[in-house]
Design a protein around this nucleic acid. Structure first.
Lengths: 246, 246
DNA sequence: CGAGCACTTGACAGGAGTCAATTGCGGTGG
DNA sequence: CCACCGCAATTGACTCCTGTCAAGTGCTCG
């Protein structure tokens, strides 16, 4: 089992929620202006170094997080130490909703996969905001419903598609957010995580990821230089992951 | 791919929601009495034969269902025809929430695994009820959050535990609902589904289920006679599935 | 410069999938 | 009432994808 350092600092500078560039993509856009101010005043901004843990599986939930910058992985571990990355949480997305609304302890840990800044909103504040903004609960409902849909996709994908197809799918999903299209048509992606984390995300092992990369490179689809991936044939990659659209 | 018969009849007899024995375990218990009457008037009762489909993946969601009796399987199929049973929905539980709140088409089909009766509540009625009963959304939020947690458990279990452990876990989970404890200490379970469905639920194949049953029988843990399973050694089964508690 | 981690590669084993044949059971129709 | 058809279930043979163990390289950071 890996060791996690639990270090973060509360940054002094105040970012107001109503001017937050992430507001539009978050649930909070439904809030009345007055309540956005309320939100701003009640939140805490926290920064985490790469590899540090935002919250731990098995500990009580005290509120939810809004990811400001960086990238967060939701890691679930069982008694034997087997771990998976359930999903990635990107800037503008919310973290810790599930256990907050289920009323349970965290059932997974949240780990900063890159230097990350988050806003923490205490549960009590959230409850109060929802009382004067009924649409807020509906927004969360929609968000969690979509996450459940994605989890269902993952269950189906993991059991009916080989690692290579899941890898192709993963690379294409990164393309949207991290890809840089060269004029030659190639797409260069700076991978935001280690091979080990990719393995956990695709429910496999680092060795299998390495071998899959080798095979894809041999086939001329991609080339890897450390964390920099170059996609030569997006078309072919789409073909290999196509069956994963259900 | 299997063929599904889409047959159901709307039963004439009216079961009132406020006297429904399932009320307590459903989300609807938060409704004011007046609204429970409203719910009763607006719902439609439908009966499905074993194997028939309540709704189809890819079709638009028009409301949600409350399972009255029987058992429903949520089946998701990809383009290639690979299928899994995402979960089972038992009497008193709700069906079709996810896509309703996500605002998408159904992303899985609901199939009656046994003769089943459901109440259908039109989406419009649901929205109206939620407006006068804000707690209702919170109930759904809790329910879906728990489902998401279960989906996460499944993702972890499928990739880190062999079929046999998942099978042990499955049998024990049926024990609560379908088990009948004999004075000898054995537990007899009438399986509510085929081997094929069990395979889909455990993300494996019918042949593997059969082999697993053979192996477990050889080890003296269980005995199977068609759909009737007898658990001889609940203790040992718990041991084999223990690591699945995360 | 050394320690530790990330990554790669090889060798090997094994769990589970696939294909195929056979048995058994249940429902339908003659 | 029984024969037949079809699906459910079992079993065998075989393949192969993926996990495991192990060794080796290279990079990064203290």
């Amino acid at each position: 089992m890996r060791r996690f350092a639990a270090r973060f600092k509360t940054t002094p500078e105040m970012i107001s929620c109503n001017t937050c560039p992430r507001l539009g993509t978050s649930e909070w856009y439904v809030l009345k202006e007055l309540d956005q101010a309320r939100l701003s005043k009640s939140k805490t901004i926290q920064s985490f170094t790469k590899g540090s843990v935002i919250f731990y599986q098995g500990t009580p939930n005290t509120g939810i997080y809004c990811v400001q910058s960086g990238i967060v992985g939701l890691r679930k571990t069982d008694e034997r130490g087997n771990a998976v990355l359930l999903n990635l949480i990107h800037p503008g997305q919310t973290l810790g909703m599930r256990s907050f609304f289920a009323g349970t302890d965290y059932m997974a840990s949240a780990e900063a996969l890159a230097p990350t800044t988050v806003c923490f909103i205490p549960g009590q504040v959230l409850r109060e905001l929802a009382q004067t903004n009924p649409e807020l609960d509906l927004e969360f409902l929609k968000h969690i419903s979509r996450e459940l849909g994605e989890a269902h996709d993952t269950i189906l994908a993991n059991t009916s598609h080989p690692v290579r197809a899941r890898m192709a799918h993963f690379l294409l999903s990164l393309k949207e957010r991290y890809g840089e299209e060269k004029n030659s048509g190639e797409v260069v992606i700076e991978l935001p995580m280690t091979r080990h984390d990719i393995a956990d995300l695709l429910s496999t092992r680092p060795e299998t990821i390495a071998r899959t990369i080798t095979a894809m490179t041999r086939d001329g689809l991609v080339r890897f230089a450390g964390r920099q991936a170059t996609l030569f044939d997006v078309e072919a990659l789409s073909g290999e992951s196509e069956a994963m659209n259900c």
